[in-house]
Design a protein around this nucleic acid. Sequence first.
DNA 1: GTTTAGCACTCAAGGAGAATGAGTGCTAAT
DNA 2: ATTAGCACTCATTCTCCTTGAGTGCTAAAC
Lengths: 350, 350
Amino acid sequence: MELTDRKKQILKVVVESYIETAEPVGSKAIVEKMASRVSSATIRNELADLEELGYLEKPHTSAGRIPSPKGYRLYVNELMEKHALSLTETEKINAAMQGKMAELDQVISKAGQMVSTFVDYPTFAAADHKERITVKRFELIPVDDGSFIAVVMLTDSRVKSQVLPLQLPVDKEELPPISHLLNTHFTTITTGEMNTRLMNLSDQVTGQWFLLISRVVEYAGDLVQEAGRQEVYTSGASQLLKFPEYQDIGKAQELMSFMVDNKEDLPLPQSDAPMQILIGPENVSAALKDSSVVVASYDIGDHMRGLIGVVGPTRMDYATVAARLSYFAENLTRMFGKKQLPLKEDDQNE
Amino acid sequence: MELTDRKKQILKVVVESYIETAEPVGSKAIVEKMASRVSSATIRNELADLEELGYLEKPHTSAGRIPSPKGYRLYVNELMEKHALSLTETEKINAAMQGKMAELDQVISKAGQMVSTFVDYPTFAAADHKERITVKRFELIPVDDGSFIAVVMLTDSRVKSQVLPLQLPVDKEELPPISHLLNTHFTTITTGEMNTRLMNLSDQVTGQWFLLISRVVEYAGDLVQEAGRQEVYTSGASQLLKFPEYQDIGKAQELMSFMVDNKEDLPLPQSDAPMQILIGPENVSAALKDSSVVVASYDIGDHMRGLIGVVGPTRMDYATVAARLSYFAENLTRMFGKKQLPLKEDDQNE
DNA sequence: GTTTAGCACTCAAGGAGAATGAGTGCTAAT
DNA sequence: ATTAGCACTCATTCTCCTTGAGTGCTAAAC
């Protein structure tokens, strides 16, 4: 059987109507929304065909039709009209993005928050490192006899610091040579290598030095570890509850517990394309089997990619969400992608 | 009318039964759980009295009784038996607390998480500063011609740092005197005062210096501002959905949106006492009018107090929650309260 | 060979009673 | 003061019925 233009037209009407109302769509309703004047009986014949082809489903015999995941897929691929943003919409987005997204750590989560409020769906946000993060530079600052500050700069230009206390007093004069040693031997390597080098060092320096160095290396190791771990932020999760498909508390709780309490376990889709739409069962995660996700990615500096996913029922308003999300992602890349901003200045080729 | 011992006894049975089952409690069920052998008719008379006194309520004429907020209050104040933790419970808590709570920033949120998983209710966590936080020390580290690292140590011993880029190149030699200037003029003062001093400085130093200093002061100002702002963390919010009282999606969403998306707006109860129970309408926040909160506080260092609140329906298991929470809070104070740990070493009396 | 009118059929949703049963309040006897 | 007993209330559940939206099929019309 063939998928005629009229069948596609009908499928489009069904999808869009169902997205709007969450109610099964009947033949009569379709007639009214169609350009060409045909009778409801004709539509019914076409609907039967579309169902046989797998694009539509019936909740029960005497209900209208709802789109199947395959139906949504066709809609998204071929039928959906690229929704252009209105001037007021772009203005609102631009205004929102003016805000203070200076701190790199905050960019990712803030971006997710903004998208969530703007598309009216829950979102998750994360960042992918293209390369492994290591320590780029150490610096030690004396505080008093019993403690000092360790400053650790990572390859992604983030700088972390903490007061580290010591059992033994340390001479201020000794800190510069120690940090020199750290910089020459403990940068650009993995935590594993750090530990081996630390072991090798144990009989080459005084116990005093060794103690201090191992404290710093431990701290740096934690940082590298933590930086490598994918931090996932979510925003607007409570909006899920407003959708009729999550009125069933069981369904709601399943997804909700992922979104708010087990963000780490959310399997993030790989993002080769700038934008990707995952419909229902296309999601790997079982918790998302009845939901859809629209994911976009954007550049952060030269070595990181931010990821924003919009989560909703399969009946999500793909056209609007996709339009707004991609506009956001493009602007984020524009703002943070190049190494022009306060965020980033890798000078590895020095 | 008087509140006899038997009435109290009955009230206790009603509260505990209702906490367990979430079903109105009838006179017959009460008889079975009472020590003294009386008939259900007698209980009914007593129940009528208790209702008249405002301790109980009826959902409708032919249902059993449920406790009113006043009833819960009496229960919590007088009737509740202090639930002692079993050995396995304390062991589990102790084991959980061994974990890595080293980073001060993480202590607060981690504490909330642990309590949530341990009491099986959602929690919020925050920290209260007893004193205003200001900058304790500045340090500037050269990176390259175009940028430097600003290290800012706050009075609560947290150290924050960031790469700050500059338009003009800066001589490494100039950084020490600049940080000396910052340390003598911009520590221990409010952001407002920082700005006035910055203004005064404008015609006393070169434009070069001024630019650099104002970048640092701006950064420090943001930090102080941010440190002053109450950060609120929540954990386990999705557990709310498992309680029958939040099966009504409207109710659930109201509280949920506070817990996951507007944490900042959660009005935190003041914590003079080490532990406080707020029942239903005793909560100031309208969103919590039908819920109860058990709050405990613990010391972090000498100048901070952590706050953990357990959120649940008014039908919350006060005895168990209170016991576990207070055990946690005491241990947290033991772990972080004194200035012995990696966290804290204020030497203001030096 | 489409298209359409017409009709029988299906089935969820909603409403009206009726039965059930848990629970009450009251009264009169203990 | 307590209790047995009884009439009463009312949410819940079930059944039965109606309604109406929607379908599939057939036979005629285009």
